[in-house]
């Protein structure tokens, strides 16, 4: 178990959000889309130019730019572990 930034996550990697460190409009948008501490996410893939990133959250798919993902810390689940 280790906490890393969402940007650093690999495709198909899963984890649980531990912190969202941004306020203002971006912070609010991130939270209202369900990215709050305790929520589980999985990386679905990245755009052809490696940015933005697509993630699976609460059964839906979201996409955000890498510089937006920089504000989100995630605790990575060990491979095979089911949260």
């Amino acid at each position: 178990m280790s906490a890393i930034l969402l940007r650093a996550m690999q495709k198909d990697q899963s984890g649980t959000i531990t912190a969202v460190k941004v306020g203002g409009e971006l912070g609010r948008r991130i939270r209202e889309m369900g990215m709050v501490p305790g929520t589980r996410i999985t990386i679905m893939g990245r755009a052809p130019l490696f940015d933005p990133v697509a993630i699976r959250i609460m059964g839906g798919t979201l996409t955000l730019r890498n510089n937006e993902a920089d504000h989100i810390e995630v605790e990575i689940a060990n491979p095979g572990e089911n949260l």
């Binding site: 839906g60 798919t61 996409t63 730019r65 937006e68």
Partner: peptide
């Protein structure tokens, strides 16, 4: 820039 963050609907 306005946050890009958006849904990729099914």
């Amino acid at each position: 820039s306005t946050p890009f963050l958006m849904e990729l609907p099914p």
